[in-house]
Structures are given as C-alpha cells and as structure tokens.
C-alpha cells in the first residue's frame, strides 16, 4: 500500500533557535533569582560558611593557651592523629554498633507497630497515641527518666527483676563497660521506633487494597500477602526511613551524653560525644573539626543516597 500526499517529515533539519548565553538567561530570569536570593544568602551564612570554616579549622592546631586566631597550621596532622589513634577505631566501632542496632531494631519495631495499627480494632487510636509518646517526649527528659530506671542501686527495672526473682541483685546496666552501650541502644530504640512507625504507617496507605484482596482470592496466606504485595510497596518508604534513622543515629548525642557521658571508661563513647569532648572539654578545636569533617563526609554520602531514594522514579516519570 502506498501513501500519497505531501511529505510531513523531511531530512532537512529544523531550524534551531540559537541558545542565549548563561548571563543573558539569568538576566532574563532575574526575577526568579531575586525571589530565591534571600534563602541562598541565609544558607550561605548559616550552612556554607560554617562548613568552610570547619574544614579550614581542621588543618590547624589550637593549643589551650592560644586564642583561636593564633591557631597553628599543621596540614593534615589532625586527620593523621585521629585516624592512627587507637581510641578512634574503638569509638568508630562503637558508633557503628550504636547506629546499626539502633536503626535495625527501631525499624523492625516500627514496622511491627505499623502493621498492627494498620488493622481495624477497638482502641486503635488510643494505642497509636500511646506508641507515639516516646517520640514526643523530650530526649533530655527521657534520658534522665531512663537513667533512673536503669540506676544500678535504686533503679526500678533492677528492683523489679529482683522482686520477681529474675536476678539476685539489681543488674548493673549503665555502670558496666559490657552493658552500657547496649542499654543506651535500648533507650534509643524506644525513643525513635515511633518515627519508623509513623513513616511506615503512611507507606501502608499506598498499598492497593484490591491487590491484597486479589492475592487473598488467589490463596495467598498472610505472610505471602505481606512479602509479595505489602513489602514491595513499602520498599521506597523503608529505604527513606532507614536512611533517616541512620543519619539520626550517627548524629545522636543527647542520650549517651546525659546518661553516661560516654562512660564508663569510654565504653559508650560514639563519634558525636567524642567530638563534643574534644571541642568543649579539651578545647582541641582543630581535632574536633577534623573529626567533624569525617562525619560530614559520611553524612553527605548518606544524604546522597537519601536524595536518590527520594527522587527514584522521577526521571522515569519525567520521561514518560
């Protein structure tokens, strides 16, 4: 079959309008730039400059007897000193343990709570409100309450365990180098599992009810419905939640600082408490800055994956 008539497409290239130069385009869109200028200026002042200054400071030594402006340039010595010190690797290991287990348990506890609360039952609203309490309570107040609950001599938990015959003596939770970090992780998980719960409850709203019903009709049991229908729909929000929890835990300060101060004997020290101690306890601003830069690099890496997770699919949608 042949088609006759005027040709619609030709090999001749379409005339392309010459692209304006960058300054010209900026000038054309000057109103837009003016609108965002205040925000950019504020960000430069409160974010970019401190980041720049911290990086700069990390190349200097700041002896306790000198003003900060008299700091001594030492190149990468702060980084070398930190990375070659035994305490750095001990604290890094503790930070990884703290971050990994806090994130893991908070996520799965939050997932369990979200799945439970997703179903209709009497008192669901009340239970949801109760489970939100840890997230709402101030971390400082929670730390003091838990410190007393854990108290090695007069703690309620220890007294209860003795009373019900689980132990002969109160357990030494936070005054023991073997149990201090684990005890703090429990508090941290208690404090932040509600956050995971909220995120995942939102994610559960996106699971199509028809799919679940269809799976049920097809004979899928509860686990199969969860694994093959619900969980794939939660993948995106789960990634974001885990990344946010990881970032939050890497930066966690209040609970370890208030409950143990990093002790006993440094057994609950993590990066942030170390940085604080270096800066404000020992006035090693340069070393603390170097530590902070390392932490910043890790955070930026996690931030990159966070943004990737948030924008996943945007390109496809844009191209569709």
């Amino acid at each position: 079959m042949s088609v006759s008539g005027p040709a619609i497409f030709t090999d001749r290239p379409m005339p392309v309008a010459k692209r304006a130069s960058l300054p010209a385009r900026m000038w054309k869109q000057r109103a837009d730039y003016l609108y965002v200028l205040p925000a950019i200026v504020v960000m430069l002042i409160v974010i970019a400059y401190p980041v720049y200054y911290t990086i700069e400071l990390s190349f200097f030594k700041t002896p306790a007897s000198l003003q900060l402006r008299d700091k001594v340039f030492i190149g990468l010595d702060n980084y070398t000193t930190i990375l070659t010190s035994g305490s750095f690797w001990k604290v890094t290991w503790q930070t990884l343990i703290w971050t990994f287990f806090s994130t893991l348990f908070a996520f799965f506890l939050g997932l369990g709570a979200a799945l439970s609360l997703h179903r209709e039952f009497v008192g669901r609203g009340v239970l949801r409100a109760i489970l939100l309490i840890p997230w709402v309570v101030s971390a400082v107040a929670a730390s003091y309450v838990w410190k007393w609950l854990y108290h090695s001599d007069f703690g309620a938990i220890g007294a209860f365990m003795v009373q019900v015959g689980l132990t002969d003596e109160p357990i030494n939770f936070i005054d023991n180098t073997s149990t201090a970090l684990a005890s703090l992780i429990v508090v941290n998980v208690w404090k932040e599992f509600s956050f995971a719960m909220i995120m995942l409850m939102a994610g559960l709203q996106t699971v199509p009810e028809q799919l679940l019903r269809a799976a049920k009709v097809d004979g899928a049991n509860a686990w199969q419905r969860f694994w093959h229908v619900t969980f794939p729909h939660l993948a995106g929000v789960s990634t974001v939640t885990v990344l946010l929890l990881t970032v939050q835990n890497f930066n966690s300060f209040i609970i370890p600082f208030i409950m143990t101060g990093g002790g006993p004997a440094g057994s609950s020290d993590i990066w942030i408490t170390q940085i604080y101690q270096l800066a404000f306890g020992r006035q090693r601003w340069g070393a603390a800055a170097a530590y902070s830069v390392l932490l910043f690099i890790i955070m930026m890496t996690l931030g990159y994956f966070y943004v990737r997770a948030l924008t996943r699919g945007d390109d496809k949608r844009a191209g569709a």
């Binding site: 090695s152 001599d153 007069f154 030494n172 005054d175 409950m259 143990t260 002790g263």
Partner: peptide, 16 residues
Amino acid sequence: VPTSALTNTQAENQAP
C-alpha cells in the same frame, strides 16, 4: 560504695 558511682555526680548522692 554506690555501684552507680561511675555515672553519679554529687546530685545523685542526695537522694540516697
């Protein structure tokens, strides 16, 4: 002495 000495300041001695 209190087992909690490692996390105690003087304020924590007052209650006992």
